[in-house]
Design a protein around this nucleic acid. Structure first.
Lengths: 220, 220
DNA sequence: CACGAATATTTGTCAAACAAATGTCTTGGC
DNA sequence: GCCAAGACATTTGTTTGACAAATATTCGTG
């Protein structure tokens, strides 16, 4: 068996609501259910699955919490398959990382070091495979007005995301984004001393130019 | 607002069951509820919160799916706070990554490249700050019989985890573990051509000796 | 003393209903 | 004919009450 209990009861699932979770999850994995698709109403789902509505709902609420479904009321409402995105996963991951920090299963130093480690690699990869479009995006984030107004706490995020995206690796981007979201969450709790925006911006321009020159070492 | 919808309704929570999720989650974050603690029975919880039991259950099932709670029946049973661990988060993350792969929001190449990127950094950090105990653990994984019997598909996992652990960064370890769990899951689906175990083992010994010598470049 | 059955407790599931939200349709007025 | 306001229909959200299943404890009996 796995080192930890399998989340979502993906393995055993002898409980009814877990079987339903597996069922719907599998349908999404196989492409049988695609983003935008609408599930039958809960009562009908319950009937067709041969279970009661509360049991169906327990399953739906779990899948909803994992950003796989979304529900709304009304005639045009219902339960819909969400568009799966790294951003959604990163947001969930942010919650988990925040919790680990809260219970001291992780330190702020480790979080920061991980950010540095991943970003360093991402910059290296980005420098090697950058495209004109990536450069344009990065340049825009440095120049734009929106850049400064984006977030009082971490205006950096947009820029760092651009770097991660330029690496062309969506998993690294996901990890980076989750770390940044966590930092932003922390910043909202304890008002961190805001770094000088101008200094930050200058540093960004240096990194940008290094990537422009494909100079991996300098970029790091 | 956030770039993506906040998972678990952490933000708004105008739906009752989401408020309960927030409530319990907050109690765990603040340390009010600690691992091993037992929640009141569902009926009593419902009464004290002023809601119905199905509503309470929808919240509990979500928290259970996130590996924060576990339930069992019987007099000694009930709902308990789980010990939060990176392993649990990594396991959940594995499910999400697997789903992203299924719907082509991620490629196997990106997964593999991310593993390489993170591990490379982890090895570098590990080489710089390795302890005798870390070395002992790594050596044991190379030598032990258990090492070979651990998993038919990826006996590497134990060794790679030892590397990540030696980096002293639990977040990097978490990321690494989630990637390895994903690979193992994929390996179980499609029986991958098994790499030569002896070759793999020899490579591991080389990495080990490099870390022993604190030679960062060679380790990479 | 040992062992099995009754028992108590807690989660798991079911059933039927009402409340809230939200489009759609109808109807009345102009 | 057109438009707006209210009635209506549909779907999720929530409540109530009950029964089933699992399981540790207790009690009774050999």
């Amino acid at each position: 068996m796995g080192t930890a209990a399998d989340s979502q009861g993906t393995r055993k699932g002898h409980k009814t609501y877990q079987q339903i979770i597996m069922h719907i999850r599998g349908a999404i994995s196989s492409g049988e259910l695609r983003p935008g698709d609408r599930l039958p109403p809960e009562t009908e789902l319950a009937r067709s699955l041969g279970v009661s509505r509360p049991t169906v709902r327990e399953a739906l609420k779990v899948l909803e919490a994992f950003n796989l479904l979304e529900s709304s009321t009304g005639p045009t409402g219902g339960t819909f398959i969400r568009t799966l995105s790294g951003a959604g996963v990163a947001d969930s991951l942010k919650d988990s990382i925040t919790l680990l920090l809260d219970v001291d299963e992780l330190t702020l130093e480790e979080l920061w070091a991980a950010r540095e480690a991943i970003e360093t690699r991402a910059v290296g990869i980005a420098a090697a495979r950058r495209t004109e479009q990536d450069l344009a995006t990065m340049w825009r984030t440095i120049e734009s007005d929106e850049y400064r107004e984006f977030d009082d706490y971490f205006p950096d995020i947009t820029f760092h995301r651009a770097i991660a995206d330029a690496s062309g690796n969506r998993l690294l981007s996901l990890f980076m984004l989750s770390i940044h979201l966590t930092l932003r969450t922390l910043a909202k709790r304890y008002i961190l001393p805001s770094k000088s925006k101008q200094v930050s911006q200058d540093q960004h321009r240096l990194v940008y130019e290094a990537i422009l020159d494909r100079d991996e070492k300098l970029a790091r």
